[in-house]
Simulated assay, not measured.
Amino acid sequence: MSFEITGKFIAKYDIVQRTESFKTREFVIEKTEDIGGRTINNYVKFQCTQDRTAMPDRFNIGDEVKVLFNIKGTKWVKDGRENYITNLDAWRMEHIKLSQEDANMPPAFIPDAPPSEIVDDLPF
C-alpha cells in the first residue's frame, strides 16, 4: 500500500552504508496543518534505500514537496524480548508548484470517453 504527504523539505542527512551491499539515507519534511484555529507542525522523517538515496539531492531545503512512500515494519528478538521498528520508505519525491494563477483556474473538463465515442442521446 502506498501513501503520500506534502510539506516543506527541512533536512537531509548523509548516506549511511549499512552493509557492503545496503545503504540508506534519511530526510525530513514539515507538515503544517490548521486544526480548530491552531497551527500544528508535524515533522516526518523518511528513509530511502539503495539507488533512491540520491533522490533528496534534487531538492533544496525549504522546497514544497510531495513524498510517496510505503510503511514497512520489522520485528526481531534480542535477549528474549521482541522489538519492532517502523520505517516510512520513500520511493518518490516531487516538487509542488502552486502559483496563484493555477489556484484560480477552474478544473479542466475531461470527458469520460474520447470525443469520437460521446453519444448525444437527448430526446430534443
Rank of each mutant, 00 (worst) to 15 (best):
F3E: 00
E4H: 07
I5M: 06
T6I: 03
G7T: 02
F9T: 01
A11Y: 10
A11I: 01
K12N: 05
D14M: 06
D14H: 05
I15H: 00
I15R: 08
V16A: 08
V16I: 15
V16F: 10
R18K: 15
R18C: 13
R18I: 15
R18V: 15
E20S: 13
S21I: 10
F22W: 14
F22A: 12
K23W: 02
T24R: 04
R25F: 07
I29P: 02
E30G: 08
K31F: 03
E33H: 12
D34L: 12
D34F: 09
I35G: 10
G36A: 13
N41Y: 09
N41F: 05
N41W: 01
Y43E: 09
Y43L: 10
V44S: 02
K45C: 13
F46N: 01
Q47N: 10
Q47P: 00
C48L: 05
T49C: 11
T49G: 08
T49W: 01
D51M: 08
R52S: 05
T53A: 06
A54C: 06
A54W: 04
A54G: 13
M55I: 04
D57W: 09
G62V: 10
D63I: 10
L68W: 03
L68H: 05
F69A: 03
F69L: 04
I71C: 06
I71R: 06
K72L: 08
K72A: 08
G73W: 00
G73S: 12
W76E: 02
V77E: 15
K78Y: 02
K78R: 09
K78V: 05
D79N: 14
D79W: 03
G80V: 10
R81A: 12
E82P: 10
N83P: 00
I85W: 00
N87Y: 05
N87W: 07
N87L: 11
L88F: 14
A90L: 03
R92H: 08
M93D: 04
M93L: 02
E94Q: 08
I96S: 00
S99H: 07
Q100R: 13
Q100I: 12
Q100V: 09
A103P: 01
M105Q: 15
M105T: 14
M105I: 11
P107R: 05
A108N: 11
A108R: 04
F109K: 13
I110K: 12
I110N: 08
I110Y: 03
P111E: 03
P115I: 08
P115T: 08
P115V: 07
P115H: 06
P115Q: 07
S116T: 07
E117Q: 14
I118E: 08
I118H: 04
I118D: 00
D121Q: 12
P123T: 09
F124E: 13
